[in-house]
């Protein structure tokens, strides 16, 4: 899929994807720009961003682990923390629905998933761990898109959206550590 997108609006004008999405669209476009740049993106302060989770900043030692170790840690991730991430993610969706912006949300998610599904593709179709990591990162991208579009301030998914775009999988608090997995270069 070609990026950046140009959209033809209802009046036949060519506008950017950000403009077509309306408020929050610029933040969505920034996120997707970063996703397309992938691991090549420089200047990402991984250590700081990893602690700024979608459920709030945590004060835990950071553990950078392999993909396999990340999947193992995902199985032990703090359930209360994950429920809070889910709650905030749903809150952003509900805010958009309440503002009658379902259509823009669906468009933003559609384009984001078109871009992300291929870029975060598990290179080996039989590799279960790679599928787990890819699914988690897609879920975070979707959360980051909805959060950005909703105009949430501060944006709970901003830090982890950047990490995912830069090729990382922030797993979550697990066994007293904040676990971050390197997924390798984003295709």
């Amino acid at each position: 899929m070609a990026w950046p997108l140009t959209v033809v609006d209802q009046d036949g004008r060519r506008v950017t994807f950000a403009e077509a999405l309306g408020p929050g669209g610029a933040r969505v476009q920034e996120l997707l720009d970063a996703l397309v740049r992938g691991a090549a993106e420089a200047g990402v302060d991984v250590d700081s961003l990893a602690l700024m989770t979608p459920a709030g900043t945590v004060d835990l030692p950071l553990a950078r682990v392999s993909l396999g170790e990340g999947v193992e840690a995902a199985g032990q991730v703090d359930g209360t923390w994950l429920a809070e991430v889910d709650r905030r993610r749903n809150g952003c969706r509900q805010a958009l629905a309440a503002a009658a912006r379902d259509e823009q949300m669906e468009a933003a998610l559609h384009v984001a998933m078109l871009l992300a599904t291929e870029r975060l593709d598990p290179h080996d179709d039989a590799d279960v761990d790679a599928h787990v990591a890819s699914g988690a990162r897609l879920w975070l991208v979707a959360g980051a898109v909805v959060s950005a579009l909703s105009g949430a301030d501060p944006d709970p998914f901003l830090a982890w959206g950047r990490l995912v775009a830069a090729g990382w999988w922030p797993v979550g608090p697990s066994d007293g550590r904040m676990v971050l997995s390197a997924c390798g270069p984003v295709a």
Partner: peptide
């Protein structure tokens, strides 16, 4: 969580 992420990936692939 692991099953959740796998279901996410599968849903996206089917779509």
């Amino acid at each position: 969580p692991k099953e959740k992420w796998l279901a996410c990936r599968i849903a996206m692939e089917e779509y």
